[in-house]
Write a protein that binds this DNA or RNA. Structure first.
Length: 493
RNA sequence: GAGCCAUUAGCUCAGCUGGUAGAGCAUCUGACUUUUAAUCAGAGGGUCGGAGGUUCGAGCCCUCCAUGGCUCACCA
């Protein structure tokens, strides 16, 4: 607050005071505009200079001054609104001495309202030739440089508004993010899914394996946890007969931050009664391909230096076959935990002493296969040890009817035929508790309330979770999750 | 949590072997009624991220700290 004002901030405050002395409000109120920049371009750019002069088309625009040049008795500026920019042509003889003085004193960054006529310059740039010009909001700080925009990544994240004002690519990414989520919603709504809202504060954090954020409710005097997944509440709704539900919402995990991880991130989870994981695979590929086509106009997506083809059907690969293909190790064979550990050692797979067969298969997959799955691939049949909420595979009880979706070497979705047997579910939770005792502090907790709901009967159900931020990264060719989060988590300065 | 790299004017960036701070944009003054990274003439603007240290002398070398980026670890 007590920050010293540099010369530019000083000057802008002086201008502000001079407007007040003239009886002008430097922080104006409502302004009725008739068009956005892009609409004007779309409608009138086709006309010649002469045609426009004859037509005398009026226009009232509002926006932020981004560039400004010329000063004597005429000047130009570009005004930016949500849709883009349009040039302003201001002549002293057209707007009068007083208004021209205001225009002359206007700074880059000021928000202005302009009424005028459509006009074309000698070099053919469509412009608004001003009859009236007023400052709607005086900007008291200089904007980042017009040509390079704001480059400093830290400042782009901490002061996203500056990034949005000066970097069109960044604004495009966030507009795209909104469209992706809109498209997702529309697609599911059309399939008859209901969008619901369930609590973000849980008394038992469940539905995933991750450390939670802890908080406290004073009046109830109880510990609460920010949710790490949406899963268990949506399944209760399936028990309640809602049959096809989804929720798009924030999830919180108290883990490290990276280019692919933010402590709070957005997931969509959906559950469909009477479906299984094969149905969900199909839904997933069609959902994502649909979004890509609707938002990008194509299912072929450029990500970094790779072209990703999202056109269904996508490859389906059993985790054991995937490991076999990339390492030659065959985990279809019956083997003891000790034999599996020996194989891990031979192949340089890092494991922990307490791990069993299924954990080791998963480690093989994560350490040797995951990063190689560039084109969309459903990897299914996850070991039971790492899938406490998924149905057992009827043919081979070591594995579950679960899949994860990998694209560009990253997990994008996780889904399964939901475990609806409350007795099996209780045993799984007990297995998780044992892991917790052995030191896995991310193993699932017992959730008796959820088990009680299953005991009333949950129909066979397919469920899905998609990391929305990662999907947005993929579709906007963004290298870091921070580039698709408006306000990524930062340390206090 | 570990390693590497970065931090210089409001912004984008130079700054040599250690010799005492530079450019462009922006700002200010002046010129300019079709410019567009407008142009021309002039001017002002710096705790070189912070704190120590080495040295006659530090933006530059050393140590610690802060923030950020990338990689790794963690995230089944």
């Amino acid at each position: 607050m007590s920050e010293e004002l540099n010369d530019q901030m000083q000057v802008r405050r002086e201008k502000l005071n001079s407007y007040r002395e003239k009886g002008l409000d430097p922080f104006g109120s409502k302004f009725e505009r008739t068009a956005l920049a892009e609409e004007l371009t779309a409608q009138y750019d086709e006309f010649t200079k002469e045609e426009l002069e004859e037509k005398q088309i009026p226009a009232t625009i509002a926006g932020r001054i981004m560039t400004k040049r010329g000063k004597g008795k005429a000047g130009f500026a570009h005004v930016q609104d949500l849709s883009g920019q349009i040039q302003l042509y201001v002549r002293k003889d057209a707007i009068g001495e007083e208004a021209y003085e205001i225009f002359k004193s206007a700074d880059i960054g000021d928000i202005v309202g302009v009424t005028g006529e459509m006009f074309k310059t000698n070099v053919g740039e469509l412009s608004v030739k001003a009859n009236e010009f007023e400052i709607l909001t005086k900007s008291l700080r200089p904007l980042p440089e017009k040509f390079h925009g704001l480059k400093d990544v830290e400042q782009r994240y901490r002061q996203r508004y500056l990034d949005l004002i000066t970097n069109p690519e960044s604004r495009d990414t966030f507009v795209m993010r909104s469209k992706i989520i809109q498209s997702m919603r529309r697609y599911l709504d059309n399939l008859g899914f209901l969008e619901v809202e369930t609590p973000m504060m849980h008394s038992i954090p469940g539905g995933a394996s991750a450390r939670p954020f802890v908080t406290h409710h004073n009046a109830l005097d109880m510990e609460l946890y920010m949710r790490i997944a949406i899963e268990l509440h949506l399944k209760r709704l399936i028990v309640g007969g809602m049959e096809k539900v989804y929720e798009i919402g924030r999830v919180f995990r108290n883990e490290g931050i990276s280019t692919r991880h933010n402590p709070e991130f957005t997931m969509i989870e959906l559950y469909e009664a009477y479906a299984d994981y094969h149905d969900i695979m199909s839904l997933t590929e069609h959902l994502i391909a649909h979004i890509a086509k609707e938002v990008l106009g194509t299912a072929k997506v450029q990500y970094d230096d790779q072209e990703i083809d999202l056109e269904p059907e996508w490859t389906r690969l059993h985790m054991v076959d995937a490991v076999k293909e990339y390492t030659g190790v065959d985990f279809w064979k019956e083997m003891s935990d000790e034999e599996a550990k020996a194989l891990a050692k031979d192949h340089g797979i890092e494991i922990q002493e307490t791990m069993t067969f299924g954990h080791i298969v998963n480690e093989f997959f994560e350490q040797k296969v995951e990063e190689k799955l560039i084109q969309p691939t459903f990897v299914y049949g996850h070991p039971i040890e790492i899938s406490p909420l998924a149905k057992k595979n009827p043919e081979d009880a070591r594995f579950t009817d679960r899949f994860e979706l990998f694209i560009v070497g990253r997990e994008h979705a996780n889904a399964f035929s939901e475990l609806n047997d409350p007795i099996d579910q209780r045993e799984r939770f007990e297995g998780q508790l044992k892991e917790r005792e052995e030191g896995n502090d991310e193993a699932h907790l017992m959730d008796d309330d959820f088990l009680e709901s299953l005991e009333y009967g949950m129909p066979p159900t397919g469920g899905l979770g998609i990391g929305v931020d990662r999907l947005v990264m993929l579709l906007t060719n963004s290298a870091s999750i921070r580039d698709v989060l408006l306000f990524p988590q930062m340390r206090n300065k």
